[in-house]
Design a protein around this nucleic acid. Structure first.
Lengths: 236, 236
DNA sequence: CGCTTTTTTGAAGATGGTCAATGGGTGTGG
DNA sequence: CCACACCCATTGACCATCTTCAAAAAAGCG
């Protein structure tokens, strides 16, 4: 958590101390298991310790729309701190381990150390920037570009957090979930994956993303990482 | 601003006092004039005093993707407080008047009165909830539902803020901008508007939205306002 | 090995996009 | 006052993209 906040915010020793004093509960999750559901009122904030989680809206007809994907170090429901009712569901994608920090303790820490609150506030703002990019991605880009862009974003974020091995990233998603995130049918997901593979830029198979040619992938996805607001600018 | 924060947050007298002490600069804008541009580093936060503003991403090919629309009382760039570089542009839709409050003063106020900071934090979180809904709307709903949903959201928010006259709302948008917000071509926007008009639920003409049948519009748009996290639950 | 789940493929069809032309309204200048 | 230009809305025809549906192949898993 500390490492992650430092990716984008300056924190003093006392802020770090304050973080270390926070209590928490840890719990593992099965693939596809919900962590918090739409309509719930959480009293603790989740922090991903390992694995991945996703957030999704449930549609009238039972379909899902995935809104974002989160990796180790992310707080996928920080908004629960100041918004009573969840308007979406958070669920584990593969196996995941989550820590829960009581809201009351966090709020107390923010009052003692405003800078800590500002850092987490900033994290929720970056979250919003990622949502904005998803609006643009899903609304205005053709399917190939759209998928390439998502892969760029996921790989880039994982890279910054040190979660990639060389050019590989574990991505516990299936075609259905990819489609539910990108707003395309499973058939199109499959065919688009093939196009990407043929292009030699990236390959996604069996839950592993392998970047063959980052420059090409970035170009295909029209990816410009400024919106992620991370310090390490262009590291690839 | 006070009225708006109170729609969703509890504030004490001292918080209100703190707000009243903030200094600001007011400036009018022409239709389509940019308020803050992608890449800029703002030092003051904008508050809409009258009119409407929109936020948009600029695409490679020069097209725009509108991300959200904001009405009187909104702070469309609160994220600028803790994010240095704008990742999108804010622009006036019709004629608009904007107040600018220096970031430094706001941060000082937050340190003095954490509850005030939490209230504005909450506002940025509701913003994010609106973005999430836009992802779902633009990715997973057919054009008629999608447009109906947007109209529901805009009318509902305006209604809560007391900006509607009976069943009418001034919406300084043209078909191009509607299309750029909903991810559809101008031809489809036009044809979809006609369908809505024929359905007898809503009419949009010459920058005025007229709700003929709210219940029907809500049904068409699969609109469920919980995601707006406003206190006044179902007021229509 | 049988069962389920996931991926892959093909063909048909619908939705929405592109393009091009038309029309209405408004403002400007001759 | 009229002619013209310009912006925005409107319409039609054609076409591309993507979805749907159905079925087969492949991959886990008891």
């Amino acid at each position: 958590m500390v490492r992650n906040l430092r990716e984008h915010s300056r924190l003093g020793d006392e802020d770090i101390e304050q973080i270390k004093r926070l209590s928490f509960v840890v719990r593992p999750y099965q693939p596809n298991e919900d962590v918090i559901r739409q309509g719930d009122t959480p009293t603790a904030a989740a922090l991903v310790l390992s694995g991945m989680v996703g957030r999704y809206h449930l549609l009238r007809d039972g379909r899902r729309q995935y809104l974002s994907f989160h990796i180790t170090g992310d707080m996928p429901d920080a908004q629960g701190l100041f918004i009573e009712q969840m308007d979406h569901t958070v669920c584990a994608l593969g196996h995941a381990v989550i820590a829960f920090i009581p809201h009351a303790e966090l709020v107390r820490a923010f009052k003692a150390r405003p800078a800590l609150g500002f850092a987490i506030w900033r994290e929720t703002l970056i979250d919003a920037a990622i949502f904005r990019e998803a609006i643009t991605n899903n609304s205005a880009r053709p399917v190939l570009t759209r998928m390439a862009h998502l892969f760029c974003e996921l790989f880039y974020r994982a890279r910054v957090s040190g979660l990639t091995e060389h050019n590989r990233l574990e991505l516990p998603l299936n075609l259905v979930q990819l489609g539910e995130g990108l707003g395309m049918s499973i058939a199109t997901v499959n065919r688009t994956l093939q196009q990407l593979r043929i292009s030699g830029s990236v390959e996604f198979r069996d839950g592993v993303l392998t970047v063959k040619n980052w420059a090409k992938l970035e170009r295909l996805g029209e990816f410009e990482p400024q919106y992620l607001h991370l310090k390490k600018a262009s590291l690839l």
